[in-house]
Design a protein around this nucleic acid. Structure first.
Lengths: 202, 202
DNA sequence: TCCATATTAGAATCAATATTCTAGAACGAT
DNA sequence: ATCGTTCTAGAATATTGATTCTAATATGGA
């Protein structure tokens, strides 16, 4: 069999270059910027990625996946309330340890991508990206509240994702102060507790 | 004296058109989009705004100013903790009542604009936009904690701005559920309380 | 009516960047 | 040494969208 020329740049090399550009902040990242950071030609980038959009979405997906692996390690915390608080705290901790990737998480939002403007080469990955995490969360939610309601899921979502992410977001790009973690824990506790009084409902 | 031709489009008309485009979401808003929404030519837009950047920043500044006027009405709540909680709750409430403007608040961040890339025609407005709100907040903070420390200011900032805004942000563009308000109040209370134990410090 | 002025109007231009294209290079099996 | 394959290279092209430019228009006072 004939053998092809070996590649100088892997997919991940290119994604890493793009990540560096995104983290560097500045203006909107262009293919030329990525090529410069990569120290390679734009042709090699287009050889692997159909378009700039596909490249950027794949970068985002890779960061999301890496973020999520840390979450699964929290699955075996026995007390469910503790587990949920740990999930909340994982967000500022991950952002502090992986500043560049954390910045790249702000590139897209799943809801927007699903709505439209998403290259279908990556469409299915985008639509299933959260499935495993949702399954995990559902299980812990059931244990935490005794039963699973859409209300409970709402509180858990707010406590473990929305609030923590909202609290770190303004600090991305600079060192994340420890007060963010304290505020995250306090907010998560308080919001999770809202699900305990179901007497509000009819 | 000679009299000029009367204007068909005021500054605010143009900003309103831009606002509608931003709220409509879709892709990045261009001058052509705004002109179409305005039902006028691009020339009239450039007649009033030196550049797209100036226009968008002015839209953002107008939204921020409108948001802030609601805040000042809370100044005379006597109990400082109540006042701070009300400030926090003002954010989801404002976003619910003014969905389009709320979306336009996500256009820029003051910190980024000050750093660079800000047309100096609007630079001074950007740098002073928060002065009055900061003065108000400082006063309430002092009453809430007895004294003013940078730590206290941090907690107040997290409780009344960062957390509430982070909690609504993912819901912008669709109806904002009442749970956001409940979560905001709970989180604000919990975070403000963190400033009460100063025994942590040396 | 005619003037001075500020404005509308939108076609023409310009700049930035994404994308395509053609040529050449690297590899190991034959 | 040659070949088929996949990759690098980067110049050329296409596209997108901001900005500029010239002409025309509305207005009330002189």
């Amino acid at each position: 069999m004939d053998v092809p020329r070996p590649a100088s740049y892997t997919d991940d090399d290119i994604l890493d270059a793009a990540l560096a550009c995104v983290a560097k902040g500045g203006r909107r990242v262009g293919i030329a910027d990525i090529a410069e950071q990569l120290n390679g030609p734009v042709g090699s980038i287009y050889h692997r990625f159909a378009s700039r959009d596909v490249l950027m979405v794949r970068l985002w997906l890779r960061s999301v996946a890496r973020f999520q692996t840390g979450l699964f390690e929290l699955a075996d915390i026995p007390d469910p309330h503790e587990a949920l608080r740990a999930m909340a705290l994982h967000i500022p901790q991950y952002c502090r340890m992986n500043q560049d990737e954390a910045t790249s998480l702000t590139l897209y939002r799943q809801s927007r991508l699903l709505l439209a403007e998403c290259p279908d080469e990556v469409g299915s990955a985008v639509s299933t990206m959260n499935d495993a995490v949702i399954a995990l969360t559902v299980e812990i939610t059931r244990r935490r509240y005794g039963r699973l309601t859409s209300d409970n899921q709402h509180w858990v979502n707010m406590a473990t994702r929305v609030a923590p992410y909202g609290l770190v977001r303004p600090f991305l790009g600079r060192p994340i102060p420890s007060q963010v973690d304290d505020a995250t824990a306090a907010a998560a506790d308080a919001i999770l507790r809202l699900g305990d009084d179901s007497h509000r409902m009819a």
